[in-house]
Amino acid sequence: MNTDSSHIFSDEEKDILQEIMNIAFGNATADLGEVIDIYVELSAPSIQILGIGDIPDYLTDRMKLHPETSIVAQNFWGDFKGYGILVLPNRTGRSLIAILDDGEPNDFEMKPIAGQEREVLMEVGNILIGACVGKVCELLNTFVTYTPPQVIHENSNEYSSFVDSFDPSQTAILMETVFRFKAIDINGLLLVITSQEAIEWLRKALYEFMEPYE
């Protein structure tokens, strides 16, 4: 992994971003509970600068948390640009139905299990990624557009083509947090990966964010 990353992002810049993420993810957690009754705990986020080519290995390493995992991935673009990735233990879709509480158990009973899980993973992924990215954007005074979320199962063709889509010549800022749903004992990983082309903008936005405090 690329350890000498100071030329891309200085320690000071990392500290500001860290602070922004603490606030943003904290706000996201609060709003998820207050507004849409999804109660999650997010760990203190961490930041790393990685070569995009290193991300597949990094993901594989982090996915060892669970024997089998599912991924929900979503691209976002605007001034701030990158991917949101949610890593969850496989077959958690059913348990997630409980936290969505749609009062439609019969509907779910009728559909094949694989379809239901996909449906729930997609919706929860879309909301969690949207909440965290949205709150970062709010602090940085910008907004982004999202692609529809994709559910990718590990050990599938989908996963290898997802991994192949990373351009190894690029560098990314990877923000990571472990989240846990309060109502059900499921935890997972949320990654927000900033594309290289957005790093310059991010640097400026960080300093603009700090201006009032200086």
Partner: peptide, 24 residues
């Protein structure tokens, strides 16, 4: 219904998008 309302609130709160695909 809960799903539509949840997505609507999420869009207003977080500024994200909600997708209602025909498959689902």
């Amino acid at each position: 219904n809960p799903r539509f309302l949840r997505n609507f609130k999420s869009v207003l709160t977080f500024g994200n998008f909600a997708f209602f695909s025909q498959k689902l």
